[in-house]
Amino acid sequence: MRDLIALARACVGAAAAACVLVTAACDRGEDGRHAAPGSAAVSGARTYSVYDLESVWRDQRGAARTLGSLRGRPQVLSLIYTNCTSICPFTVAAIQLVEQQVGDQAGYVLVSLDPERDSPQRLAAYAAEHRLSSRWTLLSGPEGSVRELAALVGVKYRRVAEGEIDHSAVLLVLDANGRMVARFDQPDAVDRAAAEVRRLAPSTTHTP
């Protein structure tokens, strides 16, 4: 009891991280945490496929898509929204830099955090504005499906004032079967994400 109060006070002072670790992380399930060195961990990420989520999305061409339709090659994925002027352009630029390095060895996916405004038409316009190649898939889906995907891959977000959405800016690397092999926080992600893709697809010809 006294320890917990001390812990809570420590949390207020500086060490909220200790709070998080002590109160919850030590209770974690046995399948543990796996992630590439230096990236943020998501529990048991290699034991399941993101593509097991059965949600249905629309891509920038208006086609109905499951996440499973991305199967077949590694994907570099991030969650953004098109009205975001702060971090999202950097995220998209970072993924484009990964694309410059590994080209066809991966697909590139942007999932909208703002399905109300990000219609397929809006996603298509965004793809054009940012000169995204045909290797990119931009997805918009129901609010509950966005929450589900974000919650699974450890992306936090909330709506704040004036239509902005605070969110974690991360790059995820999925293998060909949708298992999350790496999750990188900005801004040092580009080279490491590219390295992950190369590791996953060592034999594929590189076409930048």
């Binding site: 809570a8 909220a16 998080v20 109160t23 919850a24 992380a25 209770d27 974690r28 529990s43 589900e148």
Partner: peptide
Amino acid sequence: PTDYPAFLRYAVRAALDARTTIDRD
């Protein structure tokens, strides 16, 4: 910053992901 109980609740939520199964949640 003095609302310790709220800090604890938010800290726990922040440590979870959607697959987490702990015996006090």
